[in-house]
Design a protein around this nucleic acid. Structure first.
Length: 322
DNA sequence: AAAAGAGGCAACCGCCCCACC
DNA sequence: CGGTGGGGCGGTTGCCTCTTT
């Protein structure tokens, strides 16, 4: 048996909102607020509308400070970068663009920005082929400054020997792109140097699960001075503790390191996180659900300055680790 | 000028998450 | 602890407007 509908579909008006309905809704909410119950609101406000419809109308159109019209270049840039990073999680993207709604951004992306990017991409590379898919022997050499510069509120994690930057899924990594030793992503990600490259890359090699992690380890600094290595992994839970588990391929050695990041402890107002080698006791193909859950729940116990505006969304956090 | 096609966007649908009982 | 219901989200639809033929 299906779930009961949230409202009586037969007695509910659908379609475009009239100005009269708009003002009824606006006046009611300005006077009484939503009362935390959208389902009951239309009746109280004298509207023959579904509560969800009222919510949508308010959030996307009537609420104060909504910005309509042309997107700026800066907004374009943010949307592209975030889309490349986290995929179509419009509410998170909207949280970074004051006055813009997720619906607006979604429409803008689907109708204009996607085409714009494709056009730019084809103009610069008329005979473009998919980005190369290097062998696992490719030496990683990562520059991610252009990406990280887009984000101001990075959470900082470090220990004396390692620093990491992680992209939480990212739309992330298709398991079929991975070698048995889980190194493929690590190595071909090394070609991503700019947001544009990432967009380009993800058109051909979309990723779905897990997360990417760029980082460095002092012990892995290569002879040419670059110290980047690339890893992939995921966050997981064990006995009420969350860990980041992953594998890394470094400049110095391409065997995998299995590591974990214990949750930070507050040390003089700053989170200090402990990195530790971890025995290979997990199968990366499993426990993805744990990973996803933790991504949404760990903001409270792991990071103290999340990327996401918690007033707009309480979940789906992107972490950057240095 | 009219018809057809394309584009843009508001709104709907259905699923998932989570708080509450 | 499982069930229920509301809120929130992303994907999709359908209507309206604009452009092209």
């Amino acid at each position: 048996m299906g779930r009961a509908p949230c409202c009586d579909k037969a007695n509910v008006k659908k379609g475009p909102w009239s100005t009269e309905e708009d003002s009824k809704l606006r006046e009611y909410i300005e006077k009484y607020g939503t009362g935390g119950n959208w389902i009951a609101l239309p009746q109280k406000a004298g509207l023959k509308r579904c509560g969800k419809s009222c919510r949508l109308r308010w959030l996307n159109y009537l609420r104060p400070n909504i910005k309509h019209g042309e997107f700026t270049d800066e907004e374009d840039r943010i949307i592209c970068s975030l889309f490349a990073s986290i995929g179509s999680r419009w509410s998170i993207i909207a949280a970074q663009l004051p006055g813009r709604t997720d619906n607006d951004i979604k429409n803008y992306w689907n109708t204009k920005l996607k085409k714009k990017l494709m056009a730019m991409s084809m103009t610069s590379q008329p005979h473009r082929k998919p980005p190369p898919f290097p062998s696992s022997h490719h030496t990683p050499s990562v520059s991610f400054s252009s990406l990280s510069s887009l984000y101001k509120d990075c959470t900082t994690y470090q220990d004396p020997t390692r620093s990491y930057t992680a992209f939480e899924p990212m739309s992330s990594v298709q398991s079929d792109l991975l070698n048995n030793d889980n190194t493929t992503l690590a190595t071909h990600s090394s070609l991503i140097h700019t947001p544009e490259a990432l967009v380009n890359y993800m058109q051909y090699y979309p990723v779905k699960e897990n997360f990417l992690m760029f980082g460095s380890e002092s012990s892995c600094t290569s002879s040419d001075g670059s110290s980047g290595h690339i890893s992939f992994g995921r966050e997981m839970k064990q006995e009420n503790m969350s860990y980041f588990q992953g594998f890394c391929a470094t400049n110095e050695y391409e065997d995998n390191h299995n590591f974990m990041l214990n949750p930070g402890t507050n040390n003089g107002g700053k989170n200090v996180n402990q990195w530790a080698e971890k025995p290979r006791e997990y199968n990366l193909e499993n426990d993805l659900e744990d990973f996803k859950r933790l991504i949404s729940s760990s903001s409270n116990n792991c990071c103290n300055n999340n990327f996401i505006d918690e007033n707009k969304t309480q979940e789906k956090v992107m972490y950057f680790y240095y």
